[in-house]
Structures are given as structure tokens and as C-alpha cells.
Amino acid sequence: MLEGFCTKLQRHHAAITGAVLVITCLIPFCVTSTYVLRICVVAQMNIILVLSLNMMTGLLGQMSFGHAAFFGIGAYTAAILSTKLNMPAQVTFPAAMVVAGLFGILLGLPTLKLKGYYFVIVTMVFCEIMRIVELNWMEVTRGPLGIMTIPKPGFFGLRISTQREFYFLALALVILTVIVIRNIMNSRIGYAILAVRDDEVAAESMGINIFRYKILVFAVASCFAGLAGALYAQYTGYIDPTSFTNNKSNELLVMVIFGGLGNLVGSFIGAITLSVIPELLRGLATYRQLIYGIILVVLMMVKPDGLLGAVNFKYLGQRDKLKPLKDGGKKRGAIWWKKS
């Protein structure tokens, strides 16, 4: 049933993407409540994080438990640059990406050679190290006091200050993330990455430099986490180390797995659902972590791959195209199906 539905989705994916995009653009004009818009911005920020983490864990197959560290590095970079040096957003956002990416490479170089579970622990430990540094390095991060009154971002003099403007900024960043990741995955590099995930030994014997691709993916994923961090810092105007703990990392990983490992559409679903549900369940805030736990366990029992983890849109699209024509010879799908 799910597969049939997904086949339909794939068949009309251009139309659906267009429709969703139009609706997304209309939301801030239909909804005036700043509260709802705030949730939307946070959800979009989570989408960026989850997409980048999914690239790391789902497409490359390296389980990272420390994604919040890069999120935090980006946030602190942007916050420090904009408060201490009064840098505009066209500097702070790329700087946050670069710094987070560099840290990604720095961590990746020694650790990506480690076996899977060693890597899991090391990323987790790295997240904790970063939190401790953020807490203790008073001169730079102001430790637990956090950095306050971070200015709202301005791109080349264009100030982003209302909720609606932030909404579109976040939307633009999400689209940027999707385009970059999609293009990487649809290129030669993408196939190499998938080969590394499926079987390292086989990939290596085909002449793929495993290590180089791992570093590449790790760097790109950290970059986008840093980007989300910059958005977060300049959007909320206040950051402190409590936002970048292992709990945040786990939460992101839960979103990835909920949507389905290796499935970018799933990442959207995971990020949006799990950003909105806690708001709806605000009254149940004390049970939130418990509910998360139960969701995880039940999901693993019912669908170990996540909601859309077992769905391969590319494959479904190709199969659909090659299916013998039915329904009285009416040609279908061919218009919408161009590339996958």
C-alpha cells in the first residue's frame, strides 16, 4: 500500500513539489499568528539539520551521535562574529558553515577509519567535549551565561526581522540544502557514496577512495549543520550551551530514523512531524521524552527502517515507467516523469 502510494507520489513528483512549494510560500500570508510561524521556522531549521544528518547516516551509513556539536559550532561562530565584530549575515552564515565544516574534517580525519560502533561513541563524546568547551571558555562563549542580544541577520543591508521574513530566509536555506544534497547524490560522487554504504570492501575494489568520500560527506553534513546553527543563533538572539547537548543530537537522529534512513523525503516528514508534535503536546511536556522513547521502540518493532526507509523513489519511478501500459492504453505518467 505504502509502495503504491509512493509510486504515485513519484509519478507526479514535479507537480507535487510545485504544489507544496506554492503552499509553503502561501503559509506566512494566510497565518498571522507569530507563534505558528515560529514553529514553522524551527521546523525548517530542523529540516536542514535532519537532511544533513541523513546524508551522513542514511546515505553514507556512518551513524553520527554528535550532530548537535556542529549545530552548536555554527551557532557560536555566527553569534560571536555578529556580536563582537558586527559582521553582516552574508559573512556570518558562510563563516558558520566553513568553521563547522572544518571541525567536521578535523573530527573526521582521525575517526572515520574507526569501525562503526567506535565511531558512534566518538561522535557522542565529541558532542560532550564541545559542550564542555562552550561552558568553560568564558572569554569567548560567556559559558553558561550564553550570548545575548545577537543581532538579527542582514544580507547586504536587507534586514531580516519579522517572523515572515525569517520564514522565507529559512525556506531559502532549506531549498539550498535540498539542491546541494540532491545534486551531490545524483552525481558520480553520489553513486560512490552509496557504494561505500552498501559494501566498503566491494567499493574499494572498484577503485573508490572510501576515505575521501567519507570526509567529503562528513564535511558537507557539518557545513549544513553549521548553517542551521547560524540561523538559530540569529533568529532566537540568545544561545547557551544547553541547546547543543547530546539530547539534541539524539532528537535529530530520532527524526532521521522516524522518516527513514537514506530517504530525503522521509527527512522532511520526520523533521516536520517531530517538531510540531511536541508543540501540540505542550501540556504533556513532562511525558515528552517518554513518548519519544516509546515511538522509537515501537517504530523499530514495526518498521525498522523508519516510515519511508524501505522506499526507493528512484527505483519506483523507473519501474513505473517501464510498466506495460494499462487503463485502456491511456498514456500516463510520462509527462510528469522526467528525471528522478
Partner: peptide, 20 residues
């Protein structure tokens, strides 16, 4: 399908709206 997507989106939005 498009209609369904729209309905889903709409219910999502109003769902948020109804909360607060």
C-alpha cells in the same frame, strides 16, 4: 494527489492554529 497534499497541509496548518 495534489488535492490530498493540499488537504494534508491545510489540516496541518489549522491544527497548529487551533492549538493557540
Amino acid at each position: 494527489t495534489m488535492g490530498m497534499a493540499a488537504v494534508v497541509m491545510a489540516s496541518l496548518i489549522t491544527g497548529c492554529g487551533a492549538q493557540k
